[in-house]
Amino acid sequence: MSKETSPLWEVFVRARRGLSHTHVGSLHAPDAELALRNARDVYTRRQEGVSIWVVPASAITASSPDEKDAFFDPAADKVYRHPTFYEVPDGVAHL
């Protein structure tokens, strides 16, 4: 993965309807399609996103609305990702 063959993409995610896209980080991908897939996997594993932009040096590529279902629903049932899913026995502090 070198700079020319797998450039850096900045990732912007709109966490919920009504909010604007927010910069969440970056990743490497050889092309926009892969960058978008990777952004979905890396930055929305807990369903934070309803929309993603990946931005190379000059162009902006956004996920289209009709891809939304396949893109984001799969994370909806993964409750074990959230700390509140775990039973913490009474009397345990600082966990």
Binding site: Y80, R81, H82, P83, F85, Y86, E87, V88, V92, L95
Partner: peptide
Amino acid sequence: SFHQRQGYE
């Protein structure tokens, strides 16, 4: 936080 809790559990 999820990691620590799952380990503790």
